[in-house]
Amino acid sequence: MLVADPRTAAAWRLLRQEIAEAAPERRRELLRQRANQSRAADLHMIGRAGLGHVGGDMSVLDILTTLFFGVLRVDPEHPEWADRDRFVLSKGHTAGALYSTLAAAGFFPQEELATFAAPLSALNGHPNRVKVPGVETNTGPLGHGLPVSVGMAVAGRLAGSERHVFVVLGDGELQEGSNWEAAMTAGHRRLANLTAIVDRNRLQQGARTEETSALDPLDDKFRAFGWDVHVVDGHDHLELLNVFTAPRGERPTCVIANTIKGRGVSFMEDRVEWHHKVPSSEQISLATVELAR
């Protein structure tokens, strides 16, 4: 099991405080910069490893950054704190995005990112809770995160805890039936302590979701299953922050975050081939320049 990096964790605490106290536009800018730093770290990681899921990493990073730098009640130096909020990345193939975010928050040293996918690294192609602090359950096969998160929400309610469960789902993975079993359970049990965020980038591995097995109207689907649904711009940190921290009703919350696969790197945006293509070192340099703007 990797261990926390206290220096980075301290910096994370300071940045969180600065973000919390900043005026809205400044808050958005701080989160945007932080997310783009994680994007750059992730691209270098993927370049070194020669593998990764770059498109989905880029689409989900604003969501992850907003959660870890503005929302989640977690402590990187005490990752097993019982009353922490739970975060589950159901789309486990975007582990690179999660690793770069966790490292930036000090859950483990940032130097570890260089080992991504190397033999015997803790940072496997899909996240492993036994090896990586901040990972709550092992994901990878699609359609697993939501049922486990429902169990965590049931547990939080049984324990009388205030903790909240956040789970990020890929849109393509909503084609897995297990999600709808769990959506039904959450709606039926009115699990108000559960928020599911759909990274709605509209692309799956081989094609557009709507050309493969259409998901729309996705908001109506979740509503019909008993959820409160919000549709937001998944790259607008302020919108994300507001929806994640808004007073909650008596039902589980679904946030459909409209995103762009490959977001932040012009030549990757909304292009299906960047699902898991590996950028060349020239492309990484170009992307790094774009992300530094």
Binding site: R86, R129, G143, L146, P147, V150, G151, A155, S178, E181
Partner: peptide, 20 residues
């Protein structure tokens, strides 16, 4: 959870990972 075995096992895992 009703007739939903994948959900059932996932929910069980979530409970176990939360100390139950």
């Amino acid at each position: 959870v009703g007739i939903a075995e994948q959900d059932m096992v996932g929910v069980g895992a979530g409970l176990a990972l939360s100390g139950y």
